[in-house]
């Protein structure tokens, strides 16, 4: 079966339904599957639950699906950069479940690995632990958190081969590898498509078993949220002294 689809729309054909739960990779706007998110918007599906660390910014990433009011609920750790999100949340249109970032990451990892629940010390004694089982191990308290598993996951990778093996780049990896494992069907958008065998098997981050569909998105537009730079030092002070 060929995993490679010609565009994002055909890669999602028949998969996106009203009311389903979708995981979307990325941290801020870094490593988000922007093209697949656009295609989910174009599918018109509504009442969606999204599991994603953030909610994009206005008009970018999941911000696009807030504009069209297709999201009913978000499971996230931080949503501070999105005005429309705040509006919809405060008006009661949008449901929100905050998870500590590490708990969110582990819930996804656990869900993908067949682990229904685990205990963590994160959030003990806080609002996060309310209504959850707390158990003591070796004299310390831990709160029980459930694994997460979605209907579909959309992820972004730097490189993929025709077998679905994926390689991520720098901090664009973030939530993508766990999310690829934690859904019935994972669709990956990749910047570079290569034949199976091209990627050194020792360097593969996500084995192809986790990826059902691929779409090649060459030269995607990548946005920077906080462009921070430093001044170039003068040539005189730069040079020597740095080498080991």
């Amino acid at each position: 079966m060929d995993k490679v689809f010609s565009d994002a729309r055909s890669a999602l054909a028949g998969l996106v339904k009203d009311g389903m739960t979708i995981m979307a990779g990325g941290f801020g706007l870094c490593g988000i599957p922007e093209t697949l998110i656009e295609a989910i918007r174009d599918s018109g599906a509504k009442d969606l639950t999204f599991i994603s660390n953030n909610a994009g910014v206005d008009g970018v990433g999941l911000g696009r699906l807030l504009e069209t009011r297709q999201i009913r609920k978000m499971i996230s750790s931080y949503v501070g950069e999105n005005k429309l999100f705040a509006q919809q949340y405060l008006s009661g249109e949008l449901e929100l479940e905050f998870n500590p970032q590490g708990t969110l990451a582990e819930r996804i990892r656990a869900g993908g690995a067949g682990i229904p629940a685990f205990f963590t010390k994160t959030g003990v004694g806080t609002l996060i632990a309310e209504g959850k089982e707390v158990r003591e191990f070796d004299g310390e308290k831990y709160v029980m958190e459930r694994g997460l598993f979605a209907d579909i996951s959309v992820v972004h990778a730097y490189k993929g081969d025709t077998e679905g093996n994926l390689v991520y780049r720098k901090t664009a990896r973030n939530f993508n590898p766990m999310m690829a494992t934690a859904a019935k069907i994972t669709i990956a958008e990749i910047e570079h498509l290569v034949p199976a065998g091209d990627i050194d098997p020792d360097q593969i981050h996500t084995p192809g078993i986790f990826v059902k569909r691929l779409v090649h998105v060459a030269n995607p537009i990548k946005r920077i949220e906080q462009r921070t730079t430093r001044k170039r030092e003068t040539v005189a002070s730069a040079g020597a002294g740095e080498e080991i």
Partner: peptide, 28 residues
């Protein structure tokens, strides 16, 4: 600036000879 290389405050940063990258699950 590299959009694939940011810190937790979403600021652009750089790597060093000691740098390693990993998933959010490994990070936490």
């Amino acid at each position: 600036e590299d959009p694939d290389l940011i810190n937790a405050g979403k600021q652009t940063i750089t790597e060093l000879p000691t740098t390693s990258y990993f998933s959010s699950a490994d990070s936490f």
